[in-house]
Computed example of a mutant assay.
Amino acid sequence: MRSVYPLFHPVIYLPASVLSFLSGVSVFQVGLQYLSGDISGGNARCIAMLQAFQEIIKDYSTPPEKTLSRDLTAKISSYVSFFTECNMGNAIRFLKNRIAKLPLTMPESEAKTTLQSDIDQFINEKIVVADKVIVSHSVTKIKDGDILLTYGTSSVVEMILQHAYELGKQYRVVVVDSRPKLEGQLLLRRLVAKGITCTYIHINAISYIMHEVTRVFLGASAVLSNGTVYSQVGTACVTMVAHAFQVPVLVCCEAYKFHERVHLDSICSNELGDPDAIANIPCGKELSFPDRGAKSENLQFFNLIYDVMPSDYISTIITDYGMVPPTSVPVIVREYRREHIWI
């Protein structure tokens, strides 16, 4: 059996050098919010991280006999091993690139203002505006009478469904959910409050309803260079069932989440959630799990956060650069690097 020990935990792997540099709205606090689930979703995590860096830049002072660009880059590098594992590598490359390009003669106050402005511009262009473009592309794929299926919750998918409804399109949404987070309930409440007709099921019943579905819309945490998609655990099951029923799967993902890394499975690198979340399941006393605190050599709990969806199960990836097949992902990554956006 393959080892699962390469899986990482967002607090365990926080470098000790980071802890000595944290203050105010700190990266450590953001990490704890990642762990607790108070901040979830790729966009929300990225924005929280960048805003934490803004606070750090605001409070930063260049030490004597050092330059801002070199010293601040070294400080930012302290966080890279943590946030890169949290799928934030491209945003960090952007920030380090902007720091490196600061003129050595630029006054510190002006340099700090410039960096904070660059971060705001990244959030606006790569997330806010990008989502609007993705929504405009995606609604063209929704027709009257469609039955659309989505899994869990995705901010961009929610925007797509609400915008299609505002355009007067008549469709029904199937919200598929799973334990332990049951995030789909949040999406369900907002869609129903909007007036959208919905059906709510758990993932174990997906094969019973997939024959009715016309399209599947999913969000993503990252798109890897081999065309596979990194998303919340359970999405791989959804795409495999959709593929078996020949239902198109459309993945909505901002271009800043495209990455040159390659994953063949979700075991070699993943994020572990709280084991108690899967151990403490409401059920009859006779079905309760053994006390996790008790010594047990043959019982382990692994609460995986992400899944890897094979490219064969994905019909289209909808990005702020248009709609592309999974095979075109390496081209997009190469073109972005040529534009020096991420390096």
Rank of each mutant, 00 (worst) to 15 (best):
F289S: 12
F289Y: 07
F289T: 00
F289K: 07
P290D: 02
P290I: 00
P290N: 12
D291A: 06
D291W: 01
R292H: 00
G293L: 14
G293D: 08
A294P: 00
K295F: 00
K295M: 00
K295T: 02
E297H: 10
E297P: 00
L299S: 08
L299K: 10
L299T: 15
Q300G: 10
Q300V: 15
F301S: 12
F301E: 03
F301P: 06
F301D: 05
F302Q: 10
L304R: 13
I305D: 13
Y306E: 04
Y306M: 10
D307Q: 05
V308I: 12
M309K: 04
P310S: 07
P310H: 05
S311A: 15
S311C: 09
D312T: 08
D312P: 02
D312K: 11
D312Y: 11
Y313G: 01
Y313V: 15
Y313A: 07
I314F: 03
I314D: 01
S315V: 09
S315A: 13
I318C: 09
I318V: 07
I318E: 03
T319L: 04
T319W: 08
T319V: 13
D320L: 10
D320K: 10
D320Y: 13
D320P: 07
D320R: 08
Y321A: 10
Y321I: 06
Y321E: 03
G322V: 01
G322Y: 10
G322W: 04
G322N: 08
G322M: 03
